[in-house]
Amino acid sequence: MNLAVEPSTDTDHARPRDPAEIWVARHWQDVLGFGVGIRENFFGVGGNSLDAARVINSVLDEFDRQLPLNAVMENPTVERLATLVREENGRALSLPLVEIQSGDGSRPPLFLVHPASGQVGAYCDLARALGDEFPVFGLQPVGLYTDAAPSTTIAAMARRYLDEIRAVDPVGPYFLGGCSTGAAVAVELAGLLTGAGAEVRLLAAIDHDLVDPAAGLVDSALRQLAQGREPAEVLAEWQEHDLVPHDEAPAFVTRSLRVWQANQDAVRDWRPAHHAGRLDVFGGRDRSAGWPPGMTEQAHECPAGPDGTHVQSVADELRTLIG
């Protein structure tokens, strides 16, 4: 039975908010040939029963879990299908490397390290703005989706993420970036890679506000948590602003605070070694520590587009730099 209908005209392209939604959205994009928002109907945008079977097979191949054959029909949005994937495979989705966009093989992978909040979902809009041909990976901290203790130094984070990056691309050249804490970790990663003889062609420090309009709201809530605000209140606020799934528990907010505090401490204590490379800076510096001595900075203007956001102009600059 073919369930295809006319493509949806829904323009609400809400981005994925956690690794489960990122995983489902990426596989839907691979199957459908284009990205969709988390609330767009799979069959309403052109998917059919054979496409749905491919999605189910992807879950089996990736997680060795067999979802019911009618899972996509009964859960026809990224948001709803991700609930099933999350329930079955939460631990697998908590690993540091998050593949945001597969790319088409014509461009090198871009690795973006998490901001202070630890959440890499904000990079989904940037990946989409870059274009489907670009593979994009996020690196998320240990302890955000499990009870494991987060890393507390920039050096420890970089060493952990280095193995993940090399598993994707063993030889380079490498293209790295990040927001807030992620920028510091990217710089440390660049030092490790160049010290081992690899080439780093892009090292980008991106103002978090440029790629995530909700960055200020998240950081403010985390500061309030540190001062005693109730996790349930923060969770309700984040859900109201569509920043986390509606079935998320207050424990996620508590873990977010722990990760945020670890990242704040790590940046405060970071003492970067001399680095002779170039740092491409997008927007202002949103951390107090200085960049490594010897580093050359290249500033990039990223004006707001017609929609009032800066994501597209950041993506345009990155596309030029990556080539």
Score class of each variant (00 low, 15 high):
A215T: 06
G197M: 09
H246D: 03
P245W: 00
D207Y: 07
R54I: 11
A52M: 06
R285Y: 10
A116V: 11
R91E: 09
E199T: 15
R278M: 10
E88H: 08
G178H: 13
P213C: 01
V187W: 10
D18W: 01
F282T: 04
S256F: 01
P16I: 01
L193A: 09
T296W: 02
G138I: 01
R271D: 12
E164K: 01
A167F: 11
V142M: 11
P150C: 03
Y174G: 04
P150Q: 02
H300Q: 02
G283Q: 05
P173T: 09
L32G: 14
L202Q: 07
L130F: 05
V168A: 13
W238A: 06
L203K: 08
T254C: 10
Q29A: 15
L235D: 08
D247G: 01
G182A: 07
D30Q: 13
D247R: 04
A183W: 11
G323F: 08
A158Y: 00
C124K: 01
V168M: 15
G138R: 03
Q224Y: 04
V24T: 04
Y145R: 11
A262K: 06
L189A: 07
Y161P: 07
G182W: 12
H13E: 12
A221H: 00
D265L: 11
F34N: 01
N57V: 15
V200N: 00
G138W: 09
G143L: 01
D209C: 09
S256H: 02
W270Y: 15
I322A: 05
F175K: 05
M157F: 02
W28Y: 12
T146H: 05
H275W: 15
Q239M: 14
L176H: 05
T194N: 08
R26G: 05
L162V: 03
A221C: 15
G197S: 11
N263A: 13
G228C: 02
A289Q: 10
I22F: 08
D10H: 08
P173E: 11
P245M: 08
D61S: 13
L60M: 08
V59S: 09
Q101K: 10
N89R: 06
P7A: 09
Q261F: 05
A122L: 15
L210R: 14
V171Q: 10
V120R: 02
L321S: 10
V45I: 15
Q298R: 14
H13F: 15
P96E: 00
D147A: 14
